[in-house]
Structures are given as structure tokens and as C-alpha cells.
Amino acid sequence: MFELLGLSPELFALFVAFGFMVGVFFGFFGMGGSFLVTPALLILGYPTPVAIGSSMAFVFGTAVIATLKHHDAGQVDYRLGALMFVGITVGIELGSRLVFGLEMLGIASVVVGVAYVLLLAAIGILFTRSAMNDEADGDEADERGDDADSEGAAGDAPDEDVPEIARKIKSYKIPPMMTLADGSKASLWTISGVGGGVGLISGFLGVGGGFVRMPAIYYVIGTSLAAAVGTSLFGGLMSGAVGAFTYGRAGVIDIGIVTALLLGSALGARIGSGATAYVDEDDVTIYFGLMLLTASLAVALGEVSAWLAMPVLDRISFVLLIGSALFVCAVILYHGALAVRERRDVTPSA
């Protein structure tokens, strides 16, 4: 039978379509690679090392494409990414040691599962609340009229993109201070702490960590959301390369799967990355928060499925995870199309 890199044409097309969805997600939010691909490959019956290894290689490839696209828009802080990577590497080592320690006590699976569910839920609540508060603030600002605009404080504009919690953290100026790409300053201790914390969670949960890395850059280090996405993608590129090398040495990366996924994701990542320039973050952030909450429920169902040996819950978990991601992907494309129709790019407010 005719095969493309060891895959049937139907399966190849399925991976291209799935890759497109993940690419849009990855390009827009700077996360969602291994988080979506690994469970999909596991459900399709691939062995765990093949699923994780292929997912890591795919994340690396998509991160290269999405980072290049964000680089064109000047949304990648390479120095911040590189500084964080040092902390992330140390954190991953500590996280994996913690898991081995818990395994000796026989409670690793339960603790990791519960931590994953709680973390997804916490980040989901954080994003949803933040989006709702921003919406309320936006309404109040609209009621106040154009008074604020007349002050013309162009230098304050980037600060308005930074969440309140990050502004508070930034106000504690503990030396040495590092200058970020947008000209603002952040303590090296904060950057290292965030890198270490993200790495710890990544190593502890055995995930790529984009869903922690991007919010951590945005909420703790205090960059704009676009810069957080671009820098998180750069981090994903580096950690993806390390993961792909590790699993590549074991010879478990399926090149057919990675190629098919990349064919779709390369286009999706372009559209997702491009959409960040058109789509108002507030329009989508709330759906992202709700998606993380749904993902938390999906992971919880997956854990319960394993404990109760009920595969049907695993299927429901998969449908919830992919369904919610597909919905948010459609929301991004819809808002992108709306923004293009309104020609926001051609008629800037300034």
C-alpha cells in the first residue's frame, strides 16, 4: 500500500490537519504543543516513548517556525529567554529528582496527577479573572472618555500591557537588574526564580512547560503578552531541542508523524503568530482561561480513568481536551478575520 514516510495517506492528512490546529494555538499563545500532541498520539495507540519523543521533536520544529515569525514582529526577548533557560535546566533536574524521590515513597503518580490538575486550574482561573478584570477596566476607561489619551504619555504605553501583579513585583528592585527588550527592568533574581520554577514544574510534571512558561513571563517578569508569547516560544525551541536530542538518542522519534504535523503547524503557526498583531488579546484571553479549566477537568478525568480502569473516561478526557482547543483555535481565526475586516492594521488609532 502507498505510504508517506511510513504513514497511510489518511493518517498523514489527519496529522497535517491536527498540526494546523496546534500551530495556530502555538503561534498565538506560545504553548500547546506537547500538551495537545502527546495525548493525541497516545490515544492513537503509539507507545509512550514514541508519543513523547515525536511530540518533543514537533514542538522544536514548530517553535523554530513560530519564533522566526515572532522575531519578524520584534516580539522575542532573546536575552531573557537565554537567562531563563539556565534556570529552567536546573529546575528540570530538580523536578525529575523530586519525582524519583516520590516514586520511592510510592506516591509519585498521585501527587503528579493532582499537581497537574491543580496547576492547570489555577492558571486557568488566573487568566479568566484577569481577562474579566481587564474587560471591566476597559469599560470604565471607555466611560471616562479620551481624557487619558490627551495626556499623551507614550512612554507609559508598554506598562499598560503589563498585569498589575507583575507591576508590583517589578517595583521591588533587587539588584542585579536586567534590561528587557522593551526597555523595562527586571531583577535577575526574578528571572532566575521564574526559570527555576518553570523548570521544576516541567521536570516534575514531565511536560514541555509552555503553559507555565508563558504565563510566568507575563505575570511575574512583566512583559507584554506578545513578548511573553515570543520569548516563551524561544524557550520552547531550546527545551524542545534538548528533549528531541534525548529521545532522538533512544531512536523513538517518528519522522513521518513529525513531518506531517509540521506541514500543518508551519501554516497554522504563521496564522496564529500573525493574528497576535490583529486580534485584541482581551477578546481571546478569556477563552484561553476557560480552555485551561476544561483541560484541568480533562486531565482529572484521565487520572480517574487510570485509577478506576475505565478507558471510556480517557476518551471523554481526550474529546474535552481536543474539543476545547479546537474551539479556541476557531475563536482566534474568527477574531482574526473580524479584525482584518475592520482593517485595524491599516487604520491605526494614532
Binding site: 521533536a57 514537533f58 522544536f60 520544529g61 514548530t62 523554530v64 517556525i65 531541542a241 528531541a244 536530542f245 534525548t246 529521545y247 532522538g248 538518542r249 531512536g251 522519534i253 519522522i255 513529525v258 513531518t259 509540521l262 508551519a266
Partner: peptide
Amino acid sequence: TALAVIGLVLVEA
């Protein structure tokens, strides 16, 4: 093998 796979993915990307 690992470096070849990474190189291939990089070229594809």
C-alpha cells in the same frame, strides 16, 4: 541519530 533527526526537523522547519 539524534543530531540527524534534529537537523532534519530544523531543515524541514
